[in-house]
Design a protein around this nucleic acid. Structure first.
Length: 263
DNA sequence: ATGGCCAATATGATTGGA
């Protein structure tokens, strides 16, 4: 079972890339972020034609998340707990059945939080607290579960080419990293870090200043595995070459292989 | 030289991203 996450920065601008990459990487489940469209505008048909079931939680202009799955969705639920009054489409949870039982997958787009001295950062930290609460609840179920998406968190200095450039940024502030540790300390495994300690693994390169050419990147797209998923971790990787395609997203796909068979 | 970009919107300037 191959599960991937990708912030596509507009599904309508990136449909060609997504189709090309799906054929190349052959993931079973894909978590998408920043689809930037309402549900009705999501290009379901071309993705269904490739054999995927589609679940969408979109909104106009900004944010928006989606899930693709070769296997049917048993349940789909949008919105993170404690979302009273939160109209931003950033969270979509689904259950699929496998030969090993149920598999829970979340596609999430954690708030950016910049500038850090504004209510945007307060929203980010509150959102992280809600995610911690959600995870604490779900981990009690002792299921294979993956929290996948654009976390907008640089976990450690090894996850940035130039950590000094990010010290005052909402993605790297001590409070942000502390909340991310509080999340992983619940017992979630960062799949990429479970397979490599390289300090040159990035998932985002800014469009500006030739960042990709200089490999001036950061690792902010993550797959966090519950213990029951981590038990079955076989491999993980980052499809960096996609950033070199024409008119790319500023993020690239990150994937994990689990020793779980679909049904 | 601390910059340079991109996407969506009743669009031609503004907002958000990271």
């Amino acid at each position: 079972m191959r599960i991937a996450t990708w912030n596509v920065n507009s599904i309508r601008q990136r449909l060609d890339h997504l189709q090309t990459w799906l054929k190349e990487r052959q993931p079973d489940i894909v978590c998408l972020q920043e689809i930037k469209c309402i549900d009705e505008a999501f290009p379901r048909e071309p993705l269904e034609a490739l054999g995927y079931n589609v679940a969408v939680h979109g909104q106009k202009t900004f944010n928006g998340v989606a899930l693709l799955s070769k296997y049917p969705f048993d349940e789909v639920a949008p919105g993170l707990i404690g979302h009273d009054g939160d109209v931003q489409a950033r969270f979509l949870e689904a259950l699929v059945s496998t030969k090993a039982g149920v598999l829970r997958v979340v596609s999430l787009y954690l708030p950016n939080g910049n500038p850090a001295n504004t209510d945007k950062y307060t929203y980010k930290i509150n959102w992280m607290d809600r995610l911690i609460q959600f995870s604490r609840e779900r981990l009690k179920l002792e299921e294979p579960m993956l929290l996948c998406g654009d976390f907008n968190v640089i976990p450690t200095p090894a996850d940035a080419r130039r950590p000094e450039a990010w010290v005052n940024d909402a993605l790297f502030l001590p409070k942000t990293r502390e909340k991310f540790r509080a999340l992983t300390n619940l017992g979630l495994t960062d799949a990429i870090r479970a397979v490599s300690d390289s300090d040159e693994l990035y998932s985002f390169w800014d469009y500006q200043a030739g960042a990709f050419q200089k490999n001036d990147g950061i690792r902010i797209d993550h797959l966090l595995l519950s213990p029951q998923a981590a038990d079955r971790l076989a491999d993980a990787g980052i499809d960096k070459h996609v950033r070199g395609w024409e008119k790319p997203s500023d993020h690239v796909p990150v994937w994990v292989d689990l020793a779980i068979e679909g049904r």
